[in-house]
């Protein structure tokens, strides 16, 4: 129930922010659109902790600054490697264990790996994520498990 309410609030908020018109007609369109999306989502049975993770946003404020900093460092590293006259890359594929308890945590971890330039998660099997890394340093950055710990903290802080 709280997930349904959360989804309605998010959908309504997004409509109001993008439209910012308050004529009865446009508000009615907004209500109609939100109702359609909600009905489809309910029919697909995805309105749960996974489809509407309303418990996450507050905790994300602790995780995102750290992630942004990692992304910034990785970006500059990859950009420098692109611009060097001689390509100094050593691509490799590594396997990392995702120790997250929930599917949401697992997805956040895999997507964080992909979002950081220099590493892309290319395959998942069970708890293992295959990661294509552009350089040895990028691979080591994933293997030391720091990002995994941050994501675990994100999902476990109750």
């Amino acid at each position: 129930m709280k997930h349904t309410v959360g989804l309605i609030l998010v959908l309504g908020g997004i409509w109001v922010l993008w439209s910012w018109h308050f004529t009865p007609l446009l508000l009615a369109f907004g209500v109609l659109s939100c109702a359609c999306v909600l009905l489809i989502a309910l029919r697909m049975r995805i309105v749960d902790e996974e489809g509407a993770p309303i418990h996450l946003p507050l905790r994300l404020f602790r995780y995102l600054p750290w992630l942004f900093w990692e992304i910034a460092k990785a970006n500059i590293d990859v950009a420098v490697r692109i611009l060097r006259p001689r390509l100094s890359i050593s691509p490799r594929v590594i396997e990392v264990l995702a120790s997250q308890r929930t599917d949401v945590g697992y997805v956040i971890y895999a997507n964080s790996i992909t979002l950081t330039p220099g590493t892309v998660s290319i395959h998942t099997e069970g708890d293992m994520i295959s990661v294509h890394a552009l350089t040895r340093e990028a691979a080591d950055g994933v293997l030391n498990g720091e990002m995994g710990r941050h994501v675990s903290r994100l999902e476990s802080a109750k």
């Binding site: 692109i82 890359i89 691509p91 330039p117 892309v120």
Partner: peptide, 18 residues
Amino acid sequence: RFPDFFTRMHAGGVTDTF
């Protein structure tokens, strides 16, 4: 510049994120 598809993905990542 990058030699194969998988390395080119990393270059695309630079555009998409930063």
